[in-house]
Design a protein around this nucleic acid. Sequence first.
DNA 1: TACTGATCATGT
DNA 2: ACATGATCAGTA
Length: 228
Amino acid sequence: MQTLSPLLNPPENEQILLTQAQRLAGYTLGELATLARLPIPKDLKRDKGWIGVLLEVWLGASAGSKPEQDFAALGIELKTIPVDRLGRPLETTFVCVAPLTGNTGVSWETSHVRHKLKRVLWVPVEGERQIPLAQRHIGTPLLWTPSEEEEQQLRQDWEELMDLIVLGQVERITARHGEVLQLRPKAANSKALTNAFGADGAPILTLPRGFYLKKNFTAALLARHFLL
DNA sequence: TACTGATCATGT
DNA sequence: ACATGATCAGTA
């Protein structure tokens, strides 16, 4: 009888990664945290990334804040996604920070968004706050690559948002822009500012922004897998 | 109650 | 300040 244990090194291939992720399905966060000897916070208020770190440990991702894909050798990004009892996303999904300067000549093909989403291992986790953190279950993982339709949706929103940024309209962008991809603040707080350009072309200080996948998009990609 | 704008921890 | 990991929480 083999005991479930965290991967100590990056998985050597996709199959090993996927198999390990599938093994975790059905376990609770409390069980996995105890086995990995990771302290369990009371809730996520001050540990918003805790579930992500826990899964990184179990799947052998090089944990920490390196500007790489989680499984660089495999070209795979890991995303945990909080879902309700029906498997629908409870939150938007952060993709990457949006570049507000130095965007002359940037294209969708070479964008960070496209690179990040090229191949993603989605791990659904029960996320309803009424369920104590330790009792939330891991769901069935999904190794995903954007379909042509999904990539076109992403590309259209990305180009529209980047056009506004380049035109100095970043402060007029709200989370309502974009059908599947949105731009929202991504900062420690509202006092953290970064450089951008205003409508008149002059430099301005503004909140750092990030690209996020809207829930309708992640809901559809999860449903396509689990209902089809 | 869904959504948008704001926020939390940690490491480089 | 910015990258990693995201969720919180006020208000429409």
